[in-house]
């Protein structure tokens, strides 16, 4: 499979009054055609900032992408002109945001907002665009789509709004859909519906997806590959089956151990990870997970481990082989 998007050494910082926050510290990954990549991690680990940086949607100031490349169709998204990136946003790479309540403009009709990308990228007339928008809304399962074009966002429920958001993101049939925790703000039953919808649309339209979440359960059923982020680093990356079968980084083990499992017999205590997520005010010269890690050895406190291959398509950033407890 060819690589659609290649991100290399992405670093994003925020200048705040307390100091520089190192939100993303050299993240590299690639996305292949038609593939779904899951990015998981707890709040503040840099997963949203990573994708926002790629589309250059980081509010600047205070945010700034200080290093790295994001190659899409042979061009670096981070270096191209504002006009060039504008033609890619919404047309070739589009985004679905976390909160469907606040991500729509409250004073414009749904029709206007969904049709807007067609008007600016495809040069369609308002009327044509609205017709296409109605089709798209029907496709994502909005009943009476045509009549609802004239409704305002507050007239839709949260789940319906997220469907509309997906319709708006996919209306120009982009190559890449970036979904930034699109189900976090929704009820569990609605979550399942939205995920089924995205799967169906992926099969119909064939776009690649970057799906950000902190919910490992969602990723298991949706993604092809998973990147686990911690403290602004990718600390483990693997095919989805491999990751769930052989989690290797202590943090990933902890995350999976903290999930209840349906296929388990007998009683098992859920594991919790002690300690707090790292403060990102300094870029550590040690493993960012070391303070919370029960496997940590001397070396973890001196040297930040890079991603190392442990199996085909499986990389982990850890000095310790968690299977044997020995240093690598």
């Amino acid at each position: 499979m060819t690589e659609l998007l290649t991100v290399e050494g992405l670093e994003t910082q925020f200048r705040t009054r307390e100091g520089t926050v190192h939100a993303v510290n050299g993240v590299s990954f690639s996305l292949r055609e038609g593939e779904t990549l899951g990015i998981v991690g707890e709040s503040g680990c840099g997963k949203s900032v990573t994708v926002m940086s790629i589309l250059r949607l980081i509010p600047s100031p205070p945010g700034k992408v200080v290093a790295g490349k994001a190659i899409y169709q042979g061009k670096d998204l981070l270096k191209m002109s504002d006009e060039e990136i504008r033609h890619i946003r919404g047309a070739q790479i589009s985004m679905v945001f976390q909160d469907p309540m606040t991500s729509f403009n409250p004073v414009l009709t749904i029709g206007r907002q969904v049709a807007e990308p067609l008007e600016i990228h495809m040069g369609m007339s308002r009327k044509q665009a609205l017709e296409r928008a109605a089709e798209m809304l029907a496709m994502v399962g909005i009943p009476n789509a045509k009549e609802r074009l004239n409704d305002y966002p507050h007239q839709f429920s949260g789940g319906m709004r997220q469907r509309v958001m997906i319709a708006m993101a996919l209306i120009c049939t982009p190559q890449i859909l970036i979904a930034d925790e699109p189900t976090t703000a929704l009820d569990v039953t609605i979550q399942a519906q939205i995920i089924d919808l995205v799967k169906r649309l992926r099969d119909e339209l064939g776009m690649a997806i970057i799906w950000i979440t902190h919910d490992l359960g969602i990723i298991a059923g949706l993604a092809d590959r998973v990147a686990v982020m911690y403290g602004g680093y990718i600390i483990e990356m693997a095919q989805v089956d491999e990751l769930y079968a052989h989690p290797t980084h202590p943090y990933t083990i902890g995350l999976l151990g903290s999930l209840p499992r349906m296929d388990e017999t007998g009683h098992r205590r859920l594991i919790s990870i002690d300690g707090l997520p790292p403060v990102l005010l300094e870029k550590p010269n040690y493993c960012p997970f070391a303070p919370r890690c029960k496997y940590a050895v001397e070396r973890c406190w001196h040297e930040n481990p890079p991603l190392m291959s442990v199996a085909p398509e499986h990389q982990v950033a850890c000095w310790v082989d968690t299977q044997t407890g020995r240093e690598r």
Binding site: R89, E116, I120
Partner: peptide, 21 residues
Amino acid sequence: EDYIRTARAKGLRESLVIVRH
């Protein structure tokens, strides 16, 4: 606001983001 970010993510020109949204 979030919806301004949405408008930018749709590829709107900054002037349109301001005037329309």
